[in-house]
Structure formats: structure tokens, C-alpha cells
């Protein structure tokens, strides 16, 4: 625990404050000042220049009627829920690796799991975009080669989607109905390098005698997962989940690069962050963008506190 230094002694130890000074300056200038400035400017009509006009709560009342903004929450909710399910492969892989008997293999699999991290995320992004290319992308080639395409066309006939046709390449990012499915499929098989490692750390705390006991009781492997392994990584899962949801709510880089500043065909890929970016750096409505950001902040804060209150899992 830190040693307490009283107010009297502090004059002698004033040098210690120098240690916090750089961090304090950085955070004050590049985190607190912009945040306060955002709050301040959300009451103005402002395009980033020296002139601004106080308009009271106009920006906020505009947000209430902003169908694009609220519509974008529908999109981001779907993506966030999908992201929760996308954790399953990581958990599955971690458990698989953990149950291996060979330490050597366990190590090398960890290395392989980490490998994708060293490819710049933009490169991964562009390669996936290339996978989705209607004419040259491997996704369509895969669907054609395996006959899944025929199945989709059949389903299309049955349900009248009007999306899939024989001999017509599927435009994954060009068809408004396919934008969200494409975003969900993105990054298959959704292995998060850090998550797998974190889950593995959690799993390591299981002693081998527990397994032996389970073995004697003839517990099936799924039960073993359910009653021994999953409870132990619950904390990690919860933390990852919270970070994931907050991260998803903030994210817009993928949508921006993939679908453009307007969220792609029919605006179906519009997420709150992108709408804020769009208002600021496309329309030049900085004041309104600040108000949007503030709303987003409040919503994220609300979610975090809700999570802390109700989803708490005892260690």
C-alpha cells in the first residue's frame, strides 16, 4: 500500500509531483480539455472556425428527431449482439487448446493464435474487402463451388428476398439487405487473439485433480465445460464482453472504409460513430457532432453502469 505523506511533509517531497506532471499535462490538454470543449460546443452552431452561434438546446432537440442517428443504434445493436456470439469460437478454441496434453503444442498453438495480430488491421480489412468482391472475391467463388449459392437462390425463390440469383454474383457490400449480414460474417471465424490468451489464463487455474475427479464420475466433455471450465473463465468472459460492447458502440472505422461516409447502400451500415464523423468532417457541423458525441457518451456510460450493477459475477 502507498505510504501516506501528510500535508506538513509534502513541502519536502514536492519533487514527487514532478512525476505526475507529464501525465497530468497530457491528459489535461488532450483528454479533459477536448471533452469539456465538446460539452461547451454542443450548445452552439459551429463549423470549427472562430465564429459560432449559441443556439441553446437546438442541437439536442434536433438529435431527438434525427432518424439517421436513432436508426444507427438499431444497426449497432445488431452488430453488438452478434459480437457476443462471436466470442464463442474463441472460448471453444481456448478450451480445445487447454485440454491438450502436450505443453509444447499448447505453446505453439498460442503462437499461431497470436500470429494474425501482427498483420496491420488495415491489411486484414482490405483483404476481407477483397474476399467480398462480387466478381473476383473468394466468398462468391466458395459459394459457387460448394453449391451453397444454389441453395441460397432456392431459398430466395421461396421467400422472395430478391437478393440471390443464379449466375449473378452476390454484391455483398452493394446490396442494402446484405450489408449487415456481411458485417456480421466479417472476420470469420472470429478468433480474438487476446481473448483466447486471456481465456487460457483463466483455464490454467483449474487443477488436474479436478479433471481426474470428473473423469472418475464419468462426466461428459460438454458437462465438464459447463460445470468446471466455463465458471472459471466467467470473469474473463464478462470483462471481455463489456470491453467488446463498449468497443463496438464506438467503432466506425470499418464501416467508414468499407461502405463510405454514408454507410453504404441504403445507409444500412450507418453506425452512431460514423454519423458523428459524417456530420463533423463531411457536413462540417462541428457543434452538432459534439452534441451527438455527448449523447453517445451518456449512452455508453449508462450501459457500463447497468452492467456493473446487474451483470456482476462473483469471483
Amino acid at each position: 500500500m502507498p505510504t501516506t505523506i501528510s500535508k506538513k511533509k509534502v513541502l519536502k517531497e514536492w519533487k514527487l509531483y514532478l512525476f505526475i506532471l507529464p501525465s497530468f499535462l497530457f491528459i489535461g490538454l488532450f483528454a479533459y480539455y477536448p471533452a469539456l470543449s465538446a460539452v461547451y460546443h454542443s450548445f452552439f452552431s459551429w463549423s470549427g472556425g472562430d465564429t459560432k452561434e449559441f443556439i441553446g438546446l437546438d442541437n439536442f432537440s434536433r438529435i431527438l428527431g434525427d432518424t439517421v442517428f436513432w436508426g444507427s443504434f438499431a444497426t449497432i445493436s445488431v452488430l453488438a449482439i452478434a459480437n457476443v456470439f462471436k466470442m464463442i469460437p474463441s472460448i471453444f478454441l481456448a478450451v480445445l487448446i487447454h485440454r491438450l496434453s502436450s505443453e509444447r503444442w499448447q505453446y505453439w498453438y498460442r503462437v499461431l493464435v497470436v500470429l494474425p495480430m501482427i498483420v496491420p488491421s488495415l491489411v486484414t480489412l482490405f483483404i476481407w474487402k477483397f474476399f467480398y468482391d462480387p466478381n473476383f472475391g473468394i466468398l462468391n467463388q466458395f459459394l459457387d463451388a460448394t453449391g451453397i449459392k444454389t441453395l441460397l437462390v432456392g431459398l430466395d425463390h421461396f421467400f422472395h428476398w430478391d437478393i440471390f440469383f443464379q449466375n449473378v454474383p452476390v454484391a455483398w457490400l452493394g446490396e442494402s439487405a446484405l450489408v449487415i449480414p456481411a458485417l456480421i460474417l466479417w472476420g470469420f471465424p472470429w478468433i480474438g487473439s487476446v481473448s483466447v490468451l486471456v481465456f487460457l489464463v483463466g483455464l490454467q487455474s483449474i487443477g488436474s485433480q479436478i479433471y481426474e475427479a470428473a473423469e472418475l464420475d464419468g462426466v461428459s466433455s460438454f458437462q465438464k465445460f459447463l460445470y468446471i471450465e466455463f465458471p472459471l473463465i466467467m470473469t474473463q468472459v464478462r470483462v471481455t464482453l463489456v470491453l467488446l460492447i463498449i468497443g463496438t458502440l464506438q467503432s466506425y472505422g470499418l464501416q467508414f472504409l468499407l461502405l463510405g461516409e454514408n454507410g453504404g447502400p441504403g445507409g444500412r451500415g450507418m453506425v452512431p460513430g460514423l454519423w458523428m464523423f459524417n456530420r463533423a468532417f463531411i457536413a462540417g457541423e462541428f457543434g452538432y457532432a459534439c452534441a451527438l458525441g455527448l449523447c453517445l457518451f451518456v449512452i455508453i456510460l449508462l450501459l457500463t453502469s447497468l452492467n456493473n450493477k446487474y451483470v456482476r459475477v462473483d469471483k
Partner: peptide, 22 residues
Amino acid sequence: GFLTLMLMPAITNIVPLFVLLK
């Protein structure tokens, strides 16, 4: 003060940050 910032999404800052850098 530091911890509160952990809750603050970086995204809300991008606009004023841009102006500050300017």
C-alpha cells in the same frame, strides 16, 4: 480524475481534438 476518463469514449473527443490541434 484519471479513472473517470477510462469511461469516456475516445470518439466524443475527436472533433474538439481536431480543433485543438489546429
